[in-house]
Amino acid sequence: MGDELLKVTDLQVGFSTEGGLARVLDHVNFSIDTGEIVGLVGESGCGKTTLARSILGVLPKNSARIGSGEIRFQGRNLLAEDEATLATEVRGRQITFVPQDPFSSFNPVFTIGAQIEELMKWKSPAIEAGARVGRYSRTRRKEDRERVMELLRTVQLPDPAAILAKYPHEVSGGQRQRLMIAMALLPEPRLIIADEPTTALDVTIQAQILKLLRRLATDLGVSVLFTTHDLGTAYEICDRITVMYAGQEVESAPSDEFFAAPAHPYTVRLLQSLPSRDRGITGIPGSIPGLIAPPPGCRFHPRCDLATAECSATRPGITEVGANHLVRCYHPETTTEAAP
């Protein structure tokens, strides 16, 4: 694997609510190498969006409480940097974002072209480091325009010039998501955070978008953090998969090994919940714990068949069960069960 682009160590994030502090991320460790597509998989409420947002630095200021930990991106700790530096140098330049719902991310009263131009005014790769942005010079505007047209063709949008003159409601959902991917790529970032980018799309469109994202990431050497609740889409494009449960990361493994030999009991149960003809339908009994007073130790232990006393006492450390295959469990399933 290449060198490490992003490393999250022991990150602890909570939200203050009326009922007390909700511990949404509990000492999470996570990393992405250069050029790698990492899937962050988990059910709703497991903290995957919160993790994505803390990397991006856009947690709600009033309620979010970052307890401990650090987020190292290209060697610098993003949590220690001041807001102005993050806004000009990192967010939107080095790390960009593809949202779940492309419709609500466009402003409905401006044309798509105007919005992309606004993006390029502030975030264009042509801006030199440290330069003050305020005037959008004609030469740079012209350069950027060419860059935009080229990228719109790369994401396979028909007739890019016509699309730029349209308003967001005039293009279809699949095209809007292509535009979002194009906008995420325009600043030539090192890392794209794609937060459930295909959830709102139909399967045939989803297949096209995944194919596009995979190809662009490989061609341009961009790393992608791909959050999803759908293991199927994760299988399609990810090099490595990290699973989260109730604010704790439980397992991380290269894609092939992840599906062939899952080690954490939660991962095993999650894979078994997928509809499949030869196995019938099995769910996971119980429900996700509340995050205000989560179970101590491993948060999965109340629903786990293998749980023992030590599981509820302290959270298991990281064990390496295979090459690059990390699991946080006292009783990892070593018997290789047949994956679906």
Binding site: G174, A207, L210, K211, D230, Y235, E236, A339, P340
Partner: peptide
Amino acid sequence: LLSAIPMIGERRITEDFWLEGE
């Protein structure tokens, strides 16, 4: 439509999905 469903453990659709357009 069937070829667009991601199937774990089988051929990846990102490699051979052919339907274009919307």
